[in-house]
Computed example of a mutant assay.
Amino acid sequence: MFDLGFSPNGERIVSGGRDGTVRLWNRQGELMGEPWRGHQGVVFAVAFSPDGETIASGSGNGTIRLWNAQGQLQGEPLRGHQGAVRSLRFSPDGERLASGSEDKTVRLWDVRILPESQDWQTGLQVACDRLKNHPVFERPQPEITAITLSRDICQAKLSRTRH
């Protein structure tokens, strides 16, 4: 087991482990159902949303998965980190998820927009919408303090696809 998190009401505990699974426990320490499978690597980080209805898990391959409270995957993996995801926290309103990685970045995800199987144009729009609220904090040089948010690429690609 690499990480644990309590549900907001304190009745459930989520865990992530070496076997690539996420597990849900009651507070008496009893496993609630089968392990959840959806990662291709070690699960290093887990977190409950403030309403207790969504669980995020981050793995050694740099992906993040979102689950409902019954253990069903919600959308495709969130991709962007180049190293293992070691930390996850939801914002107090549950609309954003912060992820910290061994690649020395912190990413903010708008979890209201889930990547789904879609045609490429819709997928590009979802990716670009996600970039609007998806700054990447990188470890800056001591004399540089900056946050880069790249929407220019999306605006150029979208204008070309709409002709």
Score class of each variant (00 low, 15 high):
G58M: 00
V111N: 07
R12P: 10
S15T: 15
G38T: 00
A45R: 00
G71Y: 09
G20E: 03
E34A: 13
R86T: 15
W36Q: 01
G58R: 00
W25A: 08
S87N: 05
R107Y: 00
G62I: 05
A47P: 02
F48T: 03
S87E: 06
W109D: 13
R65G: 01
G5H: 15
L108C: 07
G33Q: 03
S15P: 11
G58K: 00
N9H: 14
V43N: 06
P50Q: 04
R27L: 02
G94P: 12
E53N: 05
S87L: 09
N26I: 13
E30S: 07
G52D: 02
S99R: 13
V14F: 13
Q72G: 12
V43T: 02
G10M: 10
E102L: 15
S49V: 00
F48Q: 02
S57N: 00
R89Y: 01
W36H: 01
N68G: 02
W67S: 06
R89D: 03
R96N: 11
N61R: 08
T21A: 13
S57H: 00
E30D: 11
R89M: 03
L73S: 12
L97V: 06
Q28H: 07
E102I: 06
N9I: 00
T105I: 10
L88I: 10
F90V: 08
R79I: 13
G83K: 08
R96M: 15
F90N: 08
